[in-house]
Computed example of a mutant assay.
Amino acid sequence: MTTEIRRVNPEGLHPTPGYHHVTVVETGRTAYLAGQCPLGPDGTLVGDDVDGQVDQIVANALAALAAVGATPDRVVRSVIYVVSDERPVLAAVWARLSASALGPAFTTASTLLGVAQLGFPGQRVELDLTAAL
């Protein structure tokens, strides 16, 4: 039995750049992924720029989703953390994630945050996902 996911943009709320204001999971189980960091299999930081780190995060998130039998279209919530207070940097991260193989994950309820720092030295991006199984 496949869990039904419904995405809604209610009347009266502002238009979005691709995500939906509300995501409803009708029934079923969910998977909560730990924050996906730009770390390679050996635990070292991959990429010294935002683009390289986003690409590693996409690879890691796809592997984590696959491990529980989920695909990007089953993501019901995402939170993206970027070490920057510059809107063009935040927008570039959103655009790269949306254009990636993980792109369908960002049509759901999403939040994009600029933050002061993340957990690993040199880390610029982190991604938190929830998926309906």
Rank of each mutant, 00 (worst) to 15 (best):
L127M: 11
H21N: 02
A91M: 13
M1A: 09
L129K: 05
T27L: 05
A92D: 15
H20S: 15
L113N: 15
V83E: 08
G103Y: 07
R77M: 14
S110I: 06
E4L: 10
V82W: 02
E26D: 14
D55H: 06
S100R: 08
L13V: 10
Q123P: 00
V50K: 01
L97Q: 07
L65G: 05
Q117W: 05
Q53E: 10
S98R: 13
L33R: 01
P38D: 02
E11N: 08
A132S: 13
V76N: 07
T23K: 04
V76A: 08
H21S: 12
L39H: 06
H21D: 03
V83K: 05
P17C: 00
Q56K: 10
V93H: 06
A95Y: 03
I5V: 14
L127H: 04
A99S: 13
T108C: 13
A66I: 09
F106M: 12
G43M: 02
D73G: 15
R87I: 13
I5S: 00
Q56V: 01
T23C: 04
L113T: 08
D51H: 12
L97E: 05
V93L: 03
T71C: 13
P88M: 04
A116L: 11
Y19W: 14
T111P: 00
G114I: 08
D128C: 14
R96T: 10
R7K: 06
V58Y: 02
T16K: 07
N9I: 10
P72T: 12
A116G: 09
P104A: 05
T107M: 02
L133P: 02
A132Y: 03
V82G: 06
L45Q: 00
P17N: 09
V83H: 09
C37K: 14
P10M: 04
D55M: 06
G103C: 08
L45G: 02
V93C: 06
G122W: 09
V115I: 13
V115T: 11
I80E: 09
Q36P: 00
A116E: 13
L133D: 01
A105L: 07
A61C: 10
G52K: 06
A67W: 03
C37E: 13
A59I: 04
T130I: 15
A59V: 08
Y32T: 15
A34P: 08
T71A: 15
R87N: 12
D48G: 13
H14I: 05
R87Y: 15
L33K: 01
A105T: 09
T111Q: 12
A64N: 11
L113G: 01
L113R: 14
I5C: 00
